[in-house]
């Protein structure tokens, strides 16, 4: 059973080679420390996010903790964006967490990036060459290995939370026919099954670090100002992403309604995707999704 103390130790050990000075590293870890303060583990749930949402919205229940995590071995009603089916059998890592919305809006917009980074780093640490597709799809050579869903919800007492759902394909070896060309798993990529408890602990530790990094970036931005290209979350995201330079199709719901094609030329300092269209003009998108061509 993973205790919060063990998790804090793990996060500290995983960041032993942090590029920051020791006091900054400690500060980042402190910011992220609430993640995993309470973990509940279920065998089967419809959706982990629904359980946490219910806790936040229930007027007569205790206020949920920021960083509270719900994990399940399998989901019966897994869903992605736009109600898309998310295949969530045993052998996958399915979890959700709540994070109190204490970030300023200009920084909370980077939370989906921070979560994507944590997932991508975890998959890489376990042997698969994962990359990030804007905003936070985790994939290996075009096949999705991890999905993230982020919502902001207002609790029954008016308190705001970010509700984040994460699904990582771990030891799944067979996907439904309609997903076979789009999906992959850690086992399929590395040839061997992984201990899900270990990967789960590593993922929480990396979430602690990257959410801490986001909070630290906000602190720096407020106290000293952050210039273009200095946001530590965006810098790390760019190291892990293969979106820049890719030819893509963009759409709000790109499966149902692709809008246009272009080449990604970069990210602006707000995380917006800068796309050069075929007529030479550029457009910057702050929401929606892309597919590589």
């Amino acid at each position: 059973m993973l205790s919060h103390g063990n998790l804090l130790d793990l996060a500290a050990s995983l960041t032993a080679d942090s590029p920051f000075a020791a006091p900054v590293t400690r500060s980042i870890l402190r910011y992220g420390a609430p993640l995993g303060c309470r973990i509940t583990h279920h065998h089967t749930l419809p959706r982990c996010m629904d359980l946490l949402r219910g806790r936040a919205l229930a007027g007569n229940a205790p206020v949920p903790h920021t960083g509270e995590v719900v994990r399940a071995d399998r989901l019966t009603g897994g869903q992605g964006r736009f109600g898309r089916y998310w295949f969530a059998p045993e052998g996958g890592l399915h979890m959700a967490f709540l994070w109190a919305d204490t970030l300023l809006p200009e920084w909370s917009r980077f939370l989906p990036f921070a979560v994507g980074i944590a997932c991508c780093e975890t998959i890489r640490a376990h042997g698969a060459g994962a990359t990030l597709k804007w905003v936070n799809d985790v994939h290996v050579q075009g096949r999705k290995i991890g999905g993230i869903l982020t919502e902001t919800i207002i609790g029954s007492r008016g308190d705001r939370y970010h509700l984040v759902g994460i699904g990582l394909n771990m030891n799944v070896t067979r996907f439904p026919e309609e997903l076979r060309k789009r999906a992959t798993s850690l086992q399929l990529e590395t040839g061997q099954p992984r201990a899900i408890d270990t990967v789960f602990a590593h993922l929480l530790a990396r979430l602690q670090w990257n959410i801490g990094l986001l909070c630290y970036g906000e602190e720096q931005g407020l106290s000293e100002g952050i210039g273009p290209g200095e946001n530590p979350v965006l810098l790390r995201w760019q190291e892990l992403s293969d979106s820049v330079g890719a030819r893509i199709v963009f759409g709000y719901d790109v499966w149902k309604k692709p809008l246009y094609e272009g080449i990604v030329t970069g990210l602006d300092d707000q995380g917006g995707l800068v796309i050069r269209l075929d007529d030479g003009s550029s457009i910057t998108e702050y929401s929606g999704e892309i597919e590589y061509q």
């Binding site: 982020t150 709000y252 702050y286 929606g288």
Partner: peptide
């Protein structure tokens, strides 16, 4: 409101 793949209800 959908921003950076994060959905937020607006009241």
């Amino acid at each position: 409101m959908s921003l950076m793949k994060r959905d937020t209800p607006v009241y």
